[in-house]
Computed example of a mutant assay.
Amino acid sequence: MSPLACSLLALAALFAATDALFPNPYCSFLEMGKTDGYPQDNEVDFTITVAGGYITIPDRCTRPGNKLVGQSISVCNAPNSKPEIIVPLRTDYRRPNFGSLYIHCPSGFPGCDRLEVHVWQYCEMVIM
């Protein structure tokens, strides 16, 4: 490998390490349920655009033989503000509610009327 290629590879690794140490200050992140140990072919990722407030996240895992067991959510409003992801209270704690969230983003800030919510859903095979 040429010295230039080695330098570029080292620089890319440095940027990746910096991003891991210093997350984006304009993003919120939330994990719910089981989020580890799933093969990539049994994960679904998608983006929805919302204006904040109460939102409904569709279940893209539920199909014959699968069920939704966890999800990760990220929402950003760079460089204006940091939206807050709030999970509404539930009375049934045995079954997490993956579909209902509240995103608080002050209406006075630019970008709060059009937020991109990135969702990763983790699916598990149903064993009968």
Rank of each mutant, 00 (worst) to 15 (best):
G33L: 02
G37Q: 08
C112A: 05
R60K: 15
D59F: 03
K34V: 14
R60Q: 15
C61D: 05
S2F: 05
C123M: 00
G37M: 08
G111Y: 07
T91V: 11
V117W: 00
G111I: 12
Y93F: 09
E43N: 11
I127Y: 11
R95Q: 11
I127C: 05
V126T: 15
L101K: 12
R60N: 13
R90P: 05
A16N: 01
I86R: 13
E84W: 00
Y102A: 00
M128H: 08
L30Q: 02
V119C: 02
Y102R: 10
A10L: 10
N80D: 12
Q40T: 10
L101D: 03
N24W: 00
P88Q: 12
L89H: 09
A12M: 13
C61G: 01
C112E: 05
D41F: 09
T49G: 03
S107D: 14
I57M: 06
N97E: 12
R63T: 15
M125E: 12
E124Y: 03
L115C: 08
P106C: 08
H104S: 14
N66V: 08
V44M: 06
P23E: 06
K82A: 07
C6L: 14
R94A: 13
N97A: 06
G53R: 02
F15P: 07
G37N: 10
V126M: 09
